[in-house]
Design a protein around this nucleic acid. Structure first.
Lengths: 226, 226
DNA sequence: CGAACTCGTGACAGTTGTGTGACAAAAACC
DNA sequence: GGTTTTTGTCACACAACTGTCACGAGTTCG
């Protein structure tokens, strides 16, 4: 369920936008002023914000900046003013798109979809516990649990595992691992093999038959997605 | 250094766009047709693509879809047509933004910056899997699935299949395959036969009667479109 | 019809890629 | 300062993969 917050002072426009978006399947929150919108978004964050520029009190530009101080939510400006100056200012303030009223619902909806495609899932930002099947990584704590039991990993093994986990499901070449874990631009790729081998001893139940940390012959190594 | 590819058939517009963008500090690649643009982008990928809709030959929509098959590059449509239908179609095809000509350089530049803010760094980007009927290719994961089951392909088979899949539906000559998969400029073309044969054993239900990876006598091999 | 050609495939030997145990240097710890 | 742990290098062994060849079936064409 995708929620959209509409910040717009004109009652008629706000309602018609809300109805149109609801018809497109969105859950719609509304606010008549920037202040109200900011509070609303803090309490119950929507996935996308639509904001008018000419608002009583705090104006649209300021509203965008305020939102951006704590929030990466996609912001689309819906304004009556078709002026390069405003467009540039709004985008610079942190808006992602700018459409001119009146706008066709279909277009608005398509732009929202396009924007959402580009929006990274919140997950990739900070180090947070990653659970991969029976493995649990706690990068901030420097811990790795296998079925709830703490693994005794060395620092290199830990970093290697984190790097692989960050790209779980993707093959990472020895070169890539060397660069990201060891910060070597060149070097003996066999080093990676050895450490992968050691990591396997600890991470796999049967190191002879790896199921989690697998080799992709000719390409590199991969941590399986659960 | 940020590179932008401009695909636009009108010489005057293309040049003025290119100059304007260069003034803004971008490196600009140009192409007068979609075909040229696609080749250019494959050879030397830009960070953002600007594309016109009305192009001779392959049109803008098709160009966008073709780009999106392998590339997550941000795409901005720059079109003379201000029509909801076109806008929606372009965005649905995979474009990220749509601006109407003539557009102020400042606005275009601001939109490019806004878009780039949203674009995840290339390292995190996950190429989307290619699905061809019952076959699913996941190049980044080094995996190929047939009806959901993992195939054990060797590296050469894998690369061969990827190359064929990239041009699914068209015949590739042994020469082309030798060049692209093996990076041989010359060599024994029978080598290709052998590997195609081995690949067939794994990809076809009845290798004697190939339905997916077919021979085009006298010309080469072809991976059937679903 | 037969010669020339195309293509599929099994066999095989040489090459490459990978796992691993041993070991010494380096770092961490006490 | 000595002990323990970690790290990087090496060498060997083995398995997987690759490229070549040769034979045979099927096709094309004169």
């Amino acid at each position: 369920m995708v929620a959209v917050l509409v910040i717009e002072d004109d009652d008629r426009i706000r309602l018609s936008l809300a109805m149109a978006l609801e018809d497109e399947g969105y859950t719609v929150h509304t606010a008549a002023t920037a202040e109200e919108g900011l509070v609303r978004q803090r309490r119950e964050p929507a996935d996308t914000v639509l904001v008018d520029l000419m608002l009583p009190g705090i104006d649209g530009f300021e509203c965008i900046r305020e939102l951006r101080r704590h929030d990466e939510v996609p912001i689309v400006v819906v304004s009556a003013r078709d002026d390069t100056h405003d467009i540039v200012a709004a985008l610079e303030a942190g808006a992602d798109d700018y459409v001119v009223k009146p706008v066709a619902t279909k277009e608005l909806s398509a732009r929202l979809r396009a924007l959402r495609r580009r929006t990274r899932p919140a997950s990739v930002a900070e180090p947070r516990p990653t659970v991969l099947g029976e493995l649990e990584l706690r990068p901030y704590a420097g811990e790795v649990l296998l079925r709830g039991e703490l693994l005794a990993l060395t620092r290199t093994e830990f970093r290697l595992l984190c790097e692989l986990a960050e790209h779980a499901g993707q093959v990472l070449s020895r070169q890539q691992l060397l660069a990201r874990v060891w910060e070597y631009d060149y070097g003996d790729e066999r080093l990676v093999d050895v450490h992968v081998g050691r990591l396997r001893q600890k991470v796999e139940d049967d190191p002879g038959n790896p199921v989690r940390l697998v080799t992709v012959r000719g390409m590199g190594y991969k941590l399986q997605r659960p």
